[in-house]
């Protein structure tokens, strides 16, 4: 592939997209020995601010790869990825770390909280890496925990909380630095049905508050709660439909 495709051409700089997220002809290729595996093959889509999007697809469809790209944990082999006016596809590791800190709020299937830290400290983490001072940080973390109804649990450690509470700590952590998007990877995968409903209700509330949410899942029931569903199959977008 040609080198200039990694760099913003004069044309594309002029064409900074208006959309919050803009994926243009994204390819991701893995070298497996001598074989090349194309996990994504020319994916193109845009996400506007305030959307509630679900990305669905069976395992091996490339949806995890796409999620890693959206979450700026990885860069595409080919194509342009813009988030909030930043060209992510040309960034270095440290720039990616800053974008993750500023623009992305992750919610993981297994919560990924630090086991030794209190709920408060877990929520403080993104603010620590944003370089925000101690008192301001605690205040914001406490307020965010209160907004997910965990104001009375701030000094509990993850093993002292239920699954639903842990996921709400994780959501608070994702929200605390006011990211552009909330990126949730199977957020109800480790929860029972009742708790799943509670968490999904929380996502709807957050969406109503104006947050942009991208939900990656393989469950149609969960995907149906979103307003737009992108279906991925074999590294390509099969369907992109607005359901609400």
């Amino acid at each position: 592939m040609a080198k200039e495709e990694f760099l913003p051409s004069t044309k594309s700089v002029i064409a900074v997209p208006n959309a919050l997220i803009s994926m243009r002809n994204i390819w991701k290729t893995y070298q497996m020995g001598i074989e090349e595996l194309h996990a994504l093959q020319g994916v193109t889509f845009e996400v506007q601010k305030g959307e509630y999007l679900a990305i669905i697809g069976p395992s091996g469809s490339g949806k995890s790869t796409l999620m890693n790209l959206i979450g700026c944990l990885d860069t595409p082999s080919k194509g342009q990825y813009w988030i909030n006016g930043n060209l992510v596809s040309a960034m270095t590791d440290d720039e990616l770390a800053q974008i993750r800190n500023k623009e992305i709020g992750f919610v993981f299937q297994t919560f990924n909280l630090l086991a030794r830290a209190t709920a408060l400290h877990n929520v403080e983490l993104p603010l620590i890496y944003a370089g925000i001072g101690s008192s301001n940080r605690q205040e914001r973390a406490k307020a965010t925990l209160a907004s997910v109804e965990l104001g009375d649990r701030i000094l509990h450690r993850p093993n002292e909380l239920s699954g639903g509470q842990r996921q709400r700590v994780a959501i608070a952590r994702a929200l605390v630095n006011n990211p552009s998007i909330l990126l949730a990877d199977e957020p109800t995968g480790a929860l029972d049905t009742k708790t799943s409903f509670e968490i999904m209700a929380l996502f709807e509330k957050l969406h109503a508050d104006g947050n942009t949410i991208i939900l990656v899942t393989h469950e149609h029931d969960i995907a149906k709660r979103a307003h737009r569903v992108i279906t991925i199959r074999d590294g390509e977008i099969e369907k992109d439909e607005r359901i609400r």
Partner: peptide, 16 residues
């Protein structure tokens, strides 16, 4: 390793 992954996903740079 997991902790390092979590920290990185939340914005920790290599130098951090």
């Amino acid at each position: 390793t997991k902790e390092i992954g979590i920290r990185k996903s939340l914005g920790a740079r290599q130098s951090d």
